[in-house]
Amino acid sequence: MTVKAVIKSEGLSKYYGKGGEIRAVDGLDLEVYEGETFGLLGPNGSGKTTTVRLLNGIIKPTGGIATVNGFDIFIQENEVKRITGLLAESPGLYDKLSGYEFLEFMGALYDVPEEILKERIDELLKLFGLHDRRDHLIEGYSSGMKQKLLIAAALIHDPPILFLDEPTSTLDPRASHMVKELIEELADTAGKTIFMCSHLLPVVEELCDRIGIINNGRLIAVGTVKEIMAQTGTQSLEDAFIALTGGVIENELLAWRENGIASS
């Protein structure tokens, strides 16, 4: 059986500045297969969010091509947007709307038929434990509640492909556990393709079938966790990540104290 690549990019690039000296994403070749959970890892500023924005048709690439479910992100951006759900890293919310009103608005933006929408909003609010607060203004929600609401908003049109940028970073352990289980269910039972970015290596390790590591805009490793550890000759994903992206050398960690101690 052949596995269909639903997200496919070749030489996808996004450059900024004069002469393109800032390479946010540089020649990204990537394939994400239908039904898999793919994790994109990378240090801050490595190009994860830019990649997600490119693949969602939010910003235009400088070079290369990419398709999402066969739709070209450059010329069929509306089709791409219809079949993807996005949980952005630092998204805005309408503080002056209630949770219910916000989901109603998001549903209308994605053309969810009214007869389905009300029921779906209720179901999602119940799933995320927000049903009791459905009529409260979002400004009164905790950051965890807001994150849950945004995940619900990403699911409101039941898209086959989900992009989740740091889905559990602001959640408490219980909510984080629920979201992780939801991601597993969405992938295993509902057959969704999930593209996830996270700094939390255990979360990625637990949920993702394959991972990619991006640094300075370039994809420097792709494979399962085991394959990446084997490639780098390390024993853990954390060690593999540091080996690939660089880190502080241990004997430099307390160097800042040495001069002070010497002078005193």
Partner: peptide
């Protein structure tokens, strides 16, 4: 605030 822009730009509108 530009945070809300992402909501619109990610949607088919």
């Amino acid at each position: 605030q530009t945070e809300l822009l992402e909501l619109f730009l990610a949607a088919p509108i």
